[in-house]
Design a binder for these strands. Structure first.
Lengths: 198, 198
DNA sequence: ACCGTACCGGACCAGCGGTCCAGTTGTTCG
DNA sequence: CGAACAACTGGACCGCTGGTCCGGTACGGT
């Protein structure tokens, strides 16, 4: 990405092709049965290339997710209120929850493919520190900060994990697939409101 | 289980051996890198036997989970209050959450292995209905009923999914691994309390 | 035009989940 | 008690996967 050497033209082309192909496959097939070979074939590149660029299946999914979440991150960091800075914490939190539900529901299969939120351990290091993927990290950080600001006596970190964790659960992903996104947003908002008090 | 024909003695012996072996492996290794062959070897049976009894990796995990959750199910159905019937819904709900956290924290690796909550599709039916595993079903049902009783205006079903879903998320499982079970229980209780009102 | 090098891609590998079926063992019934 | 019948067993086997490797390719600077 932001490295010293510029990326070669064909590398860029292939990276894009791979991401696009993955999106397409993800749209049509259940994520757990998409193989790297399929991705490579669909992108019109060799398998080696896919691994060269993304390291592993998880790396691929991670990259894709990061791309998908980019807009939201921008909006939160420097967009207009209530999502961006400027609005009171309470408003920002509710707006953020809605936005996250939206992103998640537009990327259910991707989320499902990521399984949970974890682990792109360098291939063979066994007990790696298991860092969560950056998107989750960012979401959690933001949410926890807002929670702490509004209700300092809460265990903000943990509560944020609970709120976000819910979005990764399979039954909820299933609901999202059936277009119940609005319902989910409502329930979450309800929960947040009663948590934050009036 | 409760079938017409009685189970043969050697079958019982082997089923137990397989479950035990799985437990042991689960205790030592990361769940995603336990192979069925390993399980079979550790149990001292052939691979075919494992598949014969449990159908698939997921089937195995499911069976194990069911066994582990059995006590809680009993306690809820016919144990003493506040967990069992007899106490007011509010008390039962809080007690149940604590109990679930307890079960989950004593079975993190198993939960992680189950991935999310789903799918033991008969081997090759592609778009099967994807039923969740019975333990999750039972928990969800109970929780939703209690919620509905206490706060009928809520979307109890969905809220129950959110509460339970949180327990499956990877960051939370990670916390549990570090012995923060008490903290999680507190946060969840806090959440439930503000949801239920005074 | 030329050269160093980052990048490509497909042959290759070990290991996996899952299937299969011939042989074995428990159970039941005359 | 023996014989006939299932049910159970287990390891050889299969197709396929994620991941590695390295000779060849084509890009970009000069």
């Amino acid at each position: 990405m932001t490295e010293g050497r510029r990326e070669r033209a064909d590398a860029t082309r292939n990276r894009r092709a791979i991401l696009r192909a993955t999106e397409e496959l993800l749209a049509g097939h259940r994520p757990e049965q998409i193989s790297m070979e399929q991705v490579a074939a669909a992108a019109g590149v060799g398998k080696g290339t896919v691994f060269h660029r993304f390291g592993s299946r998880m790396g691929l999914m991670r990259a894709l997710m990061q791309e998908r979440a980019f807009d939201l991150e921008e909006a939160v960091r420097s967009g207009p209120p209530p999502l961006g800075p400027g609005a009171p914490a309470r408003e920002r939190l509710l707006a953020f929850l809605d936005a996250v539900v939206d992103v998640v529901s537009r990327n259910k299969s991707l989320l499902a493919a990521l399984g949970q939120a974890v682990s792109a351990n360098p291939p063979s290091s066994d007990q790696g520190p298991r860092e969560a993927h950056p998107v989750y990290r960012a979401w959690h950080e933001h949410l926890a900060a807002l929670l702490a600001e509004q209700r300092p006596e809460l265990d903000a970190e943990l509560t944020a994990h609970i709120l976000l964790g819910a979005l990764h659960s399979d039954p909820i992903l299933r609901l999202l697939e059936q277009g119940e996104g609005e319902r989910l947003a409502d329930a979450l908002r309800e929960l947040a409101v009663s948590l934050l008090g009036s």
